[in-house]
Design a protein around this nucleic acid. Structure first.
Lengths: 203, 203, 203, 203
DNA sequence: TATGAATGAGCCTTCATTCAT
DNA sequence: TATGAATGAAGGCTCATTCAT
């Protein structure tokens, strides 16, 4: 068929599309590429760039993630899932305090390295709150994992009693932002991190 | 991002072209409009929208700010200038601690209300750090004002001795980010704010 | 600004756009080009092609008609307006019958020469009915003009009494379709036309 | 449109590749699915949708109809074949007039119900005329069947003597178009149909 | 100086078609 | 033979930027 010459091709509503399966399982290579690209260039990076990085054509990316938003969401979900998994693992650590602190550090590490992305996410309205409601399952999983760590630490009186899981999540998000502001020096970063975590302790 | 040649004044300032005066003084209506529009819609808002809000044609906006980046930078500079001015005023306040705390609250207030903007700025690479190097004058002015407040508060032993002005600025930036994560509830926000400021105090 | 490098640019809802004025008055050259192109290639012809034919860039076309649908609608409206005007002129012709017949021939002439377009219009859902409701003013104007011609001819008993304006419009649309089926031979076309018009006369 | 090499059977029929038999007989499920889908959504419906409706993969559809055009043509051929068959059956009906009228009604019924499709076909250049030349066999079969009905009716002086089979086919096509214009009301449709058939009678 | 129409590169998305399994 | 993932050209649309008036 020549380049669709004369037939009007409305976008018929109600027409179903093929369901991406690999993407569902988070195993499609474009997802990793998107994670990297978005972390580096922000989510405004073109889908074309993602495709290039993934070594596939743009059509393939759109086959798996029918919308750019879908792709972004998938990346976010991936990160949240990672975070939740780490928190869950730490849940059984012997020491309440070090478990909590380890998690805080890990969160900041992860998100600081991808900060441009995180920041743009917030900007696009897709911050943790948005995501939680958009994807209640993963959002809640993160929240609950944090809550569990927090509860233990609080019981051991290692964390201020007046902090909720939501507070902690917000502070961690802020802390990673703060890291970014500080620039790349690891010493300064480490110091700032200690200070901020210190701030969570009972006085 | 390329070298940013002009920040507070349009690129052609000092060339043969006559310098628009209103813009020079930061009073050109497009600047205020841009501040409002970007705060509300993020820096992705079209220049056309800014023009409309300013009640001028798009050509006029581009006459005063030859690039969209120029316009964004001007807005940022405006905010930093405001912040610096507030800090300088507080310098003479009686109480070292309350001066510092007042400033911290004010910063967060200001930037939280324009958070979408701040966030996207950071994302676009034009965060405080970038700007500081791009415009040493304003950047330093902010830094120094914060340093002065900090010094007094530290002398009065109201703030941890191990904090530098850079640390504080980073933490404030992070705190405003944290606020955003928390959602709109004023009580929660106020509580989080207290906790974070608390964290700056000596233990 | 480089090719929008890293800032996420959502399409902010509620952002107004400049109002095209020339288009409003049907005077923008792209309209004529669109009429020609769509007549020739059908409304599936790319907007790019319309732009090319109009000798402007694609951006210009979209500036005047923010959507392809808008453009198509404008073309349709133009045609309906022409038709209505012709019908209104004939309203005062001396002879009721010849006025009606003249109009019928004219309609078919006009739409047959643009048949591919008419046909695709119907296909896209934008047939006379749709258009009438979409653009009540022009649609009604056409309807009323036809009704006036029809009333006179009926009063003179030159047209079947059981035909409504809607019937006549539908038949005319059908007749132009029929012409197309017949192929290009003018004699055959003329003959078919006579037969179909004949069919409207009282028996 | 390029020379349409294959119409009723896949392009590669007769080559070294084995000929799929079901498709040959017009019984391959994709054909029925295509008929339904195109009737419903117009020929702009994606081949993917056809495949889904047929319960096969898209690869299979393309195996049987190597081009979308091929598929569309096959559907058209199917309809024409149906029409021809109906006309042939009516050839032996007792009453010349009622045979002709019955066929006319049937034609309009059939094509009106699939009007979106017919209309878009015409638009795409693949209207009855085109098809006739592309596939002389089916086209001629329809033409001859109509001619036979017409001849009988003319002999009985129930139809205008000056009408050819080509005229009648064109008028029928136009009439189905007219129906579409009228909207869905069955009474109005029935009335219009009578008027148009009436128009074919000798005066 | 201000205006706003014009420009055109770039983005997201769709879909006919191919081909390895 | 059937499958369906991959391809990539094309199309609609946006918006920063230029320039004639």
């Amino acid at each position: 068929m020549e380049p669709r010459p004369t037939i009007l091709r409305p976008r018929w509503a109600g027409t179903s599309r093929p369901v991406p399966r690999a993407a569902d399982r988070g195993q499609f290579p474009a997802l990793a590429a998107a994670d990297a690209v978005f972390a580096e260039l922000g989510p405004a990076a073109s889908t074309e760039e993602v495709a290039r990085r993934a070594g596939v054509s743009i059509g393939t990316v759109f086959r798996h993630f029918p919308t750019k938003d879908t792709l972004i969401e998938a990346v976010v979900m991936g990160r949240l899932t990672t975070l939740a998994a780490e928190a869950e693992q730490l849940r059984d650590a012997t020491d309440a305090e070090s478990a909590f602190v380890a998690f805080a550090r890990r969160w900041i590490e992860l998100s600081a390295s991808k900060h441009r992305f995180a920041v743009a996410l917030a900007h696009s309205g897709a911050d943790v709150g948005t995501i939680r409601s958009a994807n209640p399952v993963v959002g809640r999983r993160v929240h609950d994992a944090v809550a569990a760590l927090l509860a233990r630490a609080r019981r051991a009186d290692r964390i201020r009693q007046d902090l909720t899981a939501a507070d902690v999540i917000a502070i961690l998000a802020g802390a990673s932002h703060a890291q970014e502001h500080l620039g790349p020096d690891p010493q300064q970063r480490a110091h700032l991190l200690s200070v901020m975590i210190d701030g969570l302790r009972p006085r």
